[in-house]
Design a protein around this nucleic acid. Structure first.
Lengths: 155, 155
DNA sequence: AGTGAAATTTATCTAAC
DNA sequence: GTTAGATAAATTTCACT
């Protein structure tokens, strides 16, 4: 899908806040509210906008600990990779999983209640996924940007 | 803020999709639409919900390359850390920055048009941030979960 | 095509209970 | 917490450039 500058303005706005009214978007885009709505609908249908979500504060729901876990698998075979991806999808503690190049195969963003909870998670996760060769943990002290906001420029 | 099971149901729902109508939320929560609205408002005011955003598909806006960059700083001094955090905030290519324990000090989620664009980014970013000692790059082949959805259980 | 304005449908907010 | 009425917003229709 081809995007013009108005689309990009809309995207920039809603990836910061998707609860803006059409009137507010109209002001930002320099267009009528109706036109903005139509464009937003198109952007959603064309999956330029993948989804619309509320960001929940981890602390508020008792998940004060975020860890980044680099996972290496025993073998880099597609069936093993796919099996591990499926494991990520069904594990609620894992917020995001990145399949990457480099010394590790995956980097997981994991949330836990506390260290003990994380410890338990790793034990269980390791036990359930025998393809894992090893892992390395980074404890998140602070998260600087919360979101998936992309820089949206002319393409 | 204390959350009951109804709050948690609402949070589970809206962190997947925050465009559900109050009637839909009412059905999920087993409550009237008005009551759901009031609860949602409280959750937003209490910052249990940090924000509401549209997730834009990186590909669709010409940012097909995601990289994870582990950054080590020259010294671990609070003023240097804070300066680096400010740099992250004002750098649009960086989606998220994690300040972490471990061999690296930060892990950055960076989006680029392509490898050449990423290369240019690192050059510029290094040049502008002389506190950086070194960095290590992982190229993201695939992202398994897109979002910040947390497992929300009884606390 | 893409836009804008008015009418309709739908959702949200306010007030009373 | 609920229900009912007022307000506001999103959709649809249609005429315009």
């Amino acid at each position: 899908m081809q995007l013009d500058e108005i689309d990009r303005r809309l995207l920039r706005a809603v990836q910061q806040n998707n609860r803006l009214t059409s009137d507010q978007l109209a002001e930002i885009a320099g267009l009528s509210a109706t036109a903005c709505q139509r464009r937003m609908k198109r952007l959603r249908e064309a999956k330029v906008i993948e989804g619309d979500v509320a960001i929940v504060a981890p602390r508020a729901v008792g998940r004060g600990l975020t860890t980044l876990v680099q996972v290496s698998l025993e073998r880099e075979r597609t069936d093993i990779i796919d099996r591990f991806k499926a494991a990520i999808r069904k594990t609620p503690e894992i917020m995001t999983g990145y399949y990457v190049t480099g010394d590790a195969d995956f980097l997981l963003v994991v949330t836990s209640r506390d260290m003990e909870d994380f410890e338990q998670f790793t034990r269980r996760f390791f036990y359930e996924n025998r393809d894992i060769k090893g892992f390395k943990t980074m404890v998140v002290i602070d998260r600087v940007k919360a979101g998936f906001a992309l820089p949206i420029e002319a393409i």
